[in-house]
Design a protein around this nucleic acid. Sequence first.
DNA 1: GTTCCGCATGAATCGATAG
DNA 2: ACTATCGATTCATGCGGAA
Lengths: 293, 293
Amino acid sequence: MKQIESRLFLGDCREELKKLKDNSVDLIFTSPPYADSRSNTYGGVSPDKYVEWFLPISSELLRVLKPTGTFVLNIKEKVAKGERHTYVIELILEMRKQGWLWTEEFIWHKKNSYPGKWPNRFRDAWERLLQFNKSRHFYMYQEEVMVPMGDWAQRRLKNLSETDKVRDPSRVGSGFGKRIANWIGREKAYPTNVLHLATETKNRNHSAVFPEDLPEWFIKLFTKKGDWVLDPFMGSGTTAIVAQRMERNAIGVEILPEYFNLAQKSIKPVIETHPAQLALMEGKGKYATNKSK
Amino acid sequence: MKQIESRLFLGDCREELKKLKDNSVDLIFTSPPYADSRSNTYGGVSPDKYVEWFLPISSELLRVLKPTGTFVLNIKEKVAKGERHTYVIELILEMRKQGWLWTEEFIWHKKNSYPGKWPNRFRDAWERLLQFNKSRHFYMYQEEVMVPMGDWAQRRLKNLSETDKVRDPSRVGSGFGKRIANWIGREKAYPTNVLHLATETKNRNHSAVFPEDLPEWFIKLFTKKGDWVLDPFMGSGTTAIVAQRMERNAIGVEILPEYFNLAQKSIKPVIETHPAQLALMEGKGKYATNKSK
DNA sequence: GTTCCGCATGAATCGATAG
DNA sequence: ACTATCGATTCATGCGGAA
């Protein structure tokens, strides 16, 4: 019998994060208010002051994250005066100065992007998922997010020549050839750094900023059961809800009472897990096995 | 009777670009040598010196581009010491100081990238397509790249296949293939800034950096027939070949004689277009139509 | 009970209008 | 001239009611 906790804090994360211990969190997954949106939150941070506003927070996050942990930041720059604003890429540079390692940038392809038409711009259908770490040696459970191979292997391998099967020519800058022969006959494959998910528009009365599949994927990838997951901009609690369902301890901070109350309604402070019973249910529960999309 | 020219230059683009007139090019599309790759070219630019190396070139490009023109830069940072290197985002910031507008960032999702695996990292399946402009008022022929709408495609395909429950995945955003031309219908939608496109596997011994569909899409989007297209890092000539086929004038610069010769073999210095004959073929030719703004 | 169609609804962006 | 607000534009999704 094991306990899974969920600790929710109502308040400004710039203050609330101070209550957390050093090196205590395994995964931080969050989607902070984008510049000039959710304008009543955090005073509606303007694009020009975004970096300045975020740096004290990322500094605290650096403190509470375990050396083996990971910080995943979902963000996208707005258009200002016809240009993409530079606050996101400036933030990357500044966070590196704080000591963060910019390990990777995943792309979230939003299949149902916001509609609209403009004379010199198409619809924005992607967001950044920036992966930061404290050290090069972080935990990553790659097998947990493997995807069915489908007909990829069959189709590709048939048409490839023998040399093709040995080396990947379309590499980017890296000096490695990839042995593709290892993949023949396998049923599952590792995913790439491009995620295809639709935004959830109709979820009760309050729409989540991101679909549950998004935190779910990263929680599977970077934590195991019983680990601690933190979302300093919890909103209505998507990250914490998913974490609890996946039997990870959760910490959530939200500044708006309206959202905080929604989160509280969906999340129990403590749940008990029953290993024996769970074993019986293995394969039936939604997160008992490695499901993938 | 109209002439379409293709001017190829053998040499270092830092020198060759000086031969071009101010404000004379409608579209620059290029994929420069990535840091540390093509190492015998340009002395094997190291990541740490990449920005410093590229800025004089982008300065020349700014000079030769028409105020209504567009510069599309295909690039992706490599991994160094476990981190994504920052030279690309630093380059964006520095180019803005030169006077470039960072209008947009398209994502090229490389669909058929092989499933690879490193201990800390998944396969990199996307690259940046950075759009820069000299002014907010550039030409963009959006109708030229419209794709069939999702709902429309679904109704058609429903009669053909029994995959009812799964909606057609090749809809807007993924509609990048040549089959679109066959589905000549009313209901089309504008694409997004995420491009789904497979990497090309044939002709790989000549190391085409990108598939022909990539320059084709941007040439359609940002130029009309008779416009001038420039690729300062021509390689084996993919951009110039596509430009000529689409009846755009092309300028290509390549430093390596081996690649330059390959390009020369595929490209004629001058071709003649016959409006009368073309009119008869209207609707059959792949690039027969082209509306102006 | 299926399948199908109508409808509301978004981390958007631009240009015009108002203060 | 500069910022703040607002209407217009547009399309994938999933729900609910209808066939």
